[in-house]
Design a protein around this nucleic acid. Structure first.
Lengths: 71, 71
DNA sequence: GAGGAGTGGGGTAATTAGGGCT
DNA sequence: TCTGTCCTAATTACCCCACTCC
């Protein structure tokens, strides 16, 4: 292989939906609303950067800043 | 490789598939549908120009609008 | 010439996109 | 306002086997 650039892992809408425990449709709406970056395939399907998803996931976690043991 | 002639870096269907997080067969369909330019080897296998793939990838990429946090 | 990995072609099942509604 | 579900159409994923690339 002569790529030499294996940076960003991309996730499918279904995988992101599973991470957030929501419907893939909701993930699509987030992308449409510009709340999360998306990479479209030439066919129109979306792919999401895992790093961005992780960041958003962590952001939502820290947003509910309750020091109690609620995990 | 190591042809000594740089500037025409070609990617295999598998490499392009990894970039878009799709199946190599899907990349083949893109080429068949004319959504992406392809170069055929004498044996019939397809090769793709990295510059074209990168350009396509960048064109289909949408950055997330930076939220204003707490407003 | 031999061998492993990848690719092409065809066909079928699973996801996804889009709009509208509860 | 945001999310989940219903619908149809389009795109993508995985199965087979034969051939090509290195």
């Amino acid at each position: 292989m002569t790529v030499g650039h294996v940076g960003e892992r991309l996730l499918t809408p279904g995988e992101v939906a599973a991470l957030f425990r929501v419907d893939p449709k909701t993930v699509t709406r987030w992308a449409t609303a510009g709340r999360i970056g998306s990479i479209r395939t030439p066919g129109g399907h979306r792919r999401f950067r895992e790093t961005e998803v992780q960041a958003l996931l962590a952001e939502l976690t820290t947003e509910a800043t309750e020091p109690a043991e609620h995990v």
